[in-house]
Design a protein around this nucleic acid. Structure first.
Lengths: 141, 141
DNA sequence: TATAAACTTGACCATTTTAGTCGGGTATGT
DNA sequence: ACATACCCGACTAAAATGGTCAAGTTTATA
């Protein structure tokens, strides 16, 4: 079980954006430099964040991205969903003759994964960008 | 973020084993047939479960595997650990000049992943094989 | 209005992980 | 003896991951 970099990068970039987004848009180039994330990769990530209306873009010189909602409205679950980072609990093959759906012994562990999914998603639903901002201010190095 | 099949299979196989393990050992062949998991793959998994003293093996005809502990002593965290299914929260590169360790803006998200890891591990530490057995007997939703 | 900064889009790719398979063993009950 | 079952290491196809690259379009500003 693992968390991928894409999700981590998305969160890092948005925290960065939230901190510097006062009036002016923040360019991906700046975020790239500050966070050490490849610019090209950031572009992919922000394309998805934009589609999911988490950020807005301003094109042209002096352009960049701004948050589309206030930090406390942006839950981590929204971010992960946007970049296709989802909690996959390895579903049983739907049409398989054996294992989950075909047999008497079907899917001993189904309930378990469902429970876990809820557990994790609850965690992410209760965390917003704002929480991370605060957290980061306090533990600033 | 995802859970791999290996962890799921390990849990499924152990639940199966626990249900049929009264006096006689249970062969992987039987588990393979009942659960629809490849025999060869099961062997890999059980090799690890044995190394971690979760099961014992009996060789020869009529051989098979038996639990090495009672079901309520076997926590899911033990199982996952045994088959190398660990919660990886994508550590920041230790020696990177940028990102986590080199810069002032270091690792905005570190605390988050630590928190999540604890959260998930707690879940797995509080679940034992016995819980799954009961759950399955009652066919509860 | 020329230019450069910045977003936009889509294709491409190397590496790693996953989920197995395969082929040979060795031990042991009957 | 022999079938059943565990044991073990090497191999591999396919998918996911974490990017890169190329070729745009838009727009502020000098």
């Amino acid at each position: 079980m693992k968390l991928t970099s894409k999700g981590r990068y998305a969160v890092m970039a948005l925290v960065d954006l939230a901190r510097f987004d006062n009036i002016n848009p923040v360019s991906l180039r700046d975020i790239s430099l500050r966070q050490g994330i490849s610019l090209d990769y950031l572009e992919q990530i922000f394309s998805k964040l934009k589609k999911n209306e988490i950020v807005k873009s301003i094109r042209g010189t002096q352009g960049g991205y701004v948050l589309n909602k206030s930090p406390n409205e942006i839950k981590l679950t929204n971010i992960f969903h946007a970049v296709d980072e989802k909690v996959k609990t390895v579903q049983c093959k739907k049409e398989s003759k054996k294992g989950c759906n075909g047999k008497a012994t079907k899917c001993i562990t189904h309930n378990l994964w469902d429970e876990l999914e809820v557990h994790i998603n609850t965690f992410f639903e209760n965390k917003s960008l704002k929480d991370l901002l605060n957290n980061n201010k306090e533990t600033r190095v």
